[in-house]
Simulated assay, not measured.
Amino acid sequence: MMYTAYYAESSDYSSEMSRSNEWSALDNVISGLKTAREQGLGTSQARQALHDTMTVWSFLLDDLSNQDNNFPEQLRADLISIGIFVIKQVGRIYQAQSEDVDSDVSGLIDINTAIRDGLVQ
């Protein structure tokens, strides 16, 4: 019985830490994307921001697709759809296939901000 309570407590702590790490990662992505938008997408900082965005979302997609993920199925599906969209947008920007780069980067900032703000810090 004692182990069950300890496991539940450590599992809650682990979940809180994970959410905090996800919040921080998304916050860093947002900051990088804002810098990229301000300094121009030809800079090394912009390339790094796009790479970081793809890396974070790849990690989140991997976590969301894991059967052990405790999010409700519909929420997971919605977040996976958003993640796929974000990765496609980053790819389009990388490959200079975007018709309005500033608008696309602003959209990525808005999406990442909404997801970050939805996490409990």
Rank of each mutant, 00 (worst) to 15 (best):
T113D: 14
A36E: 04
I84S: 07
I82F: 08
N28E: 07
S58E: 15
Q39W: 05
L108N: 10
Y7N: 05
D68I: 15
A77M: 06
Q121G: 03
P72G: 01
E99R: 03
S24P: 02
I111F: 05
M1A: 08
D12G: 03
Q39M: 09
G32I: 02
Y13V: 09
N21C: 12
T53L: 03
S11I: 02
A49W: 01
R37L: 15
Q97Y: 14
Y3E: 10
T43Y: 05
Y13P: 00
W57F: 02
I115P: 05
I93R: 10
R19G: 01
M17D: 05
Y6R: 06
Q74I: 08
S65V: 06
S11L: 04
Y13K: 05
D104G: 07
S65N: 14
Q67A: 13
Q45V: 04
K88N: 13
R19Q: 02
T35R: 01
L26Y: 06
S31K: 10
G83Q: 10
T113I: 02
R116P: 06
M2T: 09
I82R: 01
G42I: 14
E16C: 02
G32F: 04
G42D: 15
I109N: 03
I115L: 09
N69S: 09
N70Q: 11
S24R: 15
D78R: 07
L119D: 00
S65H: 10
D100R: 00
S65I: 05
